[in-house]
């Protein structure tokens, strides 16, 4: 990924290692969207999110000399972000693979899981509804969906971030989308019934 001042990642890393604080600031600006996405998906507590982001960049700074360019710089940073969030979840005893909400309607509770797709797509509120529904998915699913659809990462790159085989990433991604689609159809069909 080329950054705004036209430095390639190797030049940027070299400048940071030579003590240039502006180069590190540039690295933060280039990757804050990616780190923010991982953190905001994985950390439920609003007051901790910014601190965790800051902690991640400090770790990046401390370990930059050990980075050997065996993957993209952004992938390596995303891996640090994921590991840091994982440690946070473990420390707070929060689940990674379970649903993060309690109020959602299960797909099995619904009389019909086949709704009209126009109920939740193509409207102004559609993106908001999809985002809200992603927040209710298990943390790992939300993270994979964000990395694939918002950061254009391949299965292999997501696998490097999450330390999972490509096949597992693919399987999680398909399951996440299926679950998301079913829940959106159920939720908005049920809302119409209640209205």
């Amino acid at each position: 990924m080329e950054n705004r001042v036209g430095l390639d990642p190797r030049q940027l890393v070299d400048r940071i290692l030579n003590g240039d604080p502006n180069a590190f600031k540039q690295l933060v600006k280039d990757n804050e969207r990616l780190v923010g996405q991982v953190v905001f998906r994985m950390i439920p507590n609003d007051s901790d999110k910014e601190d965790v982001c800051q902690d991640i960049f400090v770790k990046v700074y401390q370990n930059l000399a050990a980075f050997r360019f065996d993957c993209k710089l952004s992938t390596w940073i995303a891996r640090i972000a994921f590991t840091t969030c994982l440690n946070y979840l473990e420390k707070k005893k929060l689940p990674l693979y379970e649903d993060t909400n309690t109020d959602n309607h299960g797909v099995d509770d619904c009389p019909s899981a086949t709704g009209d797709p126009e109920n939740w797509t193509g409207s102004r509120q559609a993106s908001v509804r999809v985002c809200e529904e992603i927040d209710r998915l298990p943390v790992i699913y939300g993270t994979i969906l964000s990395l694939f659809h918002l950061h254009d990462m391949s299965y292999a790159e997501i696998g490097q971030v999450l330390r999972l085989p490509d096949g597992t990433v693919k399987s999680y991604l398909f399951r996440a989308r299926k679950l998301l689609k079913e829940r959106l159809q159920v939720r908005y069909s049920l809302e119409e019934l209640c209205a």
Partner: peptide
């Protein structure tokens, strides 16, 4: 399409 339009923090 909707996934690609999701808000970025």
């Amino acid at each position: 399409q909707e996934l690609g339009r999701c808000r970025v923090p």
